[in-house]
Computed example of a mutant assay.
Amino acid sequence: MMHLAVLSVLLACAVSLSSSAVVLENGLPILWAHTTEQMSDLPKQNDILNPDPWHYLHRMSLYRLMIAATNPFMGSMGTDATDSPLWGLPLQLAWMVTSGRLADPTGATTCGLETGDNMCISTQSWWGCVNYLSSVLPFLSAVQQGFLGPDLQVQMQVPEGVVDYCTTYADCATRFPDVMSKWDAFFQGLKSASESPLSDAEKKDALLGLNWAAQLASTHSSSVCDTRKSYYSSTEQSFFNSWLNSAEYVAAVHFHSNIAKTVPFISPLPGRVLQENDNFADLSDEERHTLSIFSWMQSINSFLGGTLVSMWQKAMCSVQTREKGREMLEQLLLDPRFATSSFVSLVTGMATGC
C-alpha cells in the first residue's frame, strides 16, 4: 500500500511550515486516491478483518469505506457525492497529518515525521488519540449496523504494549457505551430515514442532529487521551482545548460538514504544531485570526462560567435559528471585520427568544 509516489505527494504538500496545511488533493482529502475501496482489501487474520489504524492510509480507508457504504442513505443531504456530513471527519484527519499533529510528540521515535515514517500515526499523539474516537469507533458501529456487509468481524491492530485503545465493537461499547450508542443511533437513523414521511429538509436536520450528537460524544470522551497532553507546549494545549470547545458551537447548529462547507473552516487552522511562547510569525493572517477567535471563545465562555456555550445551545432551538447560527459562526470565524461583541449580544437575544 505504501510506495514512493505516496511519500512524494505528502512531502510536497507538507514541505512548508509557513503556509496553511493542505487538506485537499484533486478535491478530496489528501491521499484519498491511495486508500482502500473494498472491505476485502483490508488486512485479515483468521477470517477477522484486521485494519491498522496507526497507518494514515488505513485510518483514512476506514472513512472511505464508511462514506461509500452510507452514501445511498444520504439523499436528503444533496445530490453530490461529497455531500455526506461524514466528510468532515477525513478532512480533519488530513489536516492533522499535514500539520504534523499525528507525529510522536515525545521525540522517542520517528513515527509521523517527514524524516521517518510519515504515514505512521503515533499512539502517543493527543490528536491521533482524539481522532481514534471519531474514526475507529464510528467505523465499528457502521460494521455492527450492517452497512459494510453481513457477518463481518473486525479487530483493529494495536502496537505491542499499548493497552488503552479499544479494538472491537464489543470492547469499545464496554469502554465507551455513550459514544457507541450515539453512533449506532445515527446509523440506525440513516436506515429509517428512507421510510420517514418527513420532508428532505426535516430529514436532513434530524440526521445532522444525530451525527453531531455522536461526534460530540466522541469529543467528550477525549479525557482518555489526557495523559498525552503533557508532551505538548502550553500554547498547543491551549489550542486543542479551544478546538474541543469550538465543537460545541458547531454541533449545536447542525453544521452540514460536507466537503464544500468544511474546507473553509479547516484550511485556516494552524498548519503546524504550536510551540512554547509561540509568536505565530510564520503563520498566515487567516491562521492567526482562527487562533485568536478560538482563544476568545474559550476565554469568554470560561469567564461567563460556561454560560456562553449553554446560551448558544439554547438559542439553536429551531431549524431557523440553527440556520442563523451557521451564518454567525461563518462570520465570526472567517470574517475578521465581524465584532466579537456583536456575537455575544446576538446570542443573548436569540436565547431569550427560545
Rank of each mutant, 00 (worst) to 15 (best):
S125L: 02
C172T: 10
P51E: 05
K191I: 11
E37S: 15
R337F: 08
L333K: 01
A81T: 11
N258I: 07
E25G: 00
V179I: 15
A213V: 04
L332H: 03
K324H: 08
N46M: 11
M96R: 01
T321F: 02
L210A: 06
A170R: 05
L210Q: 15
L207K: 06
G149Q: 09
D278C: 07
Q275Y: 08
S84F: 08
L207P: 04
A5D: 12
G189I: 06
M60E: 14
I121C: 00
G112D: 12
G306K: 04
V23K: 00
L31E: 08
W95A: 07
S299D: 15
M328Y: 08
H289D: 12
E37N: 12
G128T: 09
M156T: 10
L333C: 09
L198R: 13
L291P: 01
L4W: 07
L198D: 14
I293S: 01
A5E: 13
W32M: 07
E248W: 08
F176Y: 15
T106P: 03
F265M: 14
D164P: 01
V347N: 03
N71Y: 08
K204E: 15
S122K: 02
L148A: 05
K182L: 12
A185T: 11
N26P: 00
C13Q: 13
Q155C: 13
L17G: 15
T352S: 11
S257L: 07
W312F: 15
Q145E: 15
V136I: 10
V9T: 14
L208W: 02
T98K: 00
S18K: 11
T168H: 01
L65V: 08
Y165D: 03
P197K: 01
D117Y: 01
T35C: 09
A213R: 03
R337M: 13
V250W: 10
G353S: 12
P53G: 00
M350C: 11
A21R: 02
A81S: 14
S267I: 11
F303Y: 08
E248Q: 14
R64A: 02
T321A: 12
V15Y: 04
S16A: 11
A5F: 05
P150E: 12
H58N: 10
V162E: 14
C172L: 06
A252I: 12
N241C: 05
L31I: 10
S257T: 13
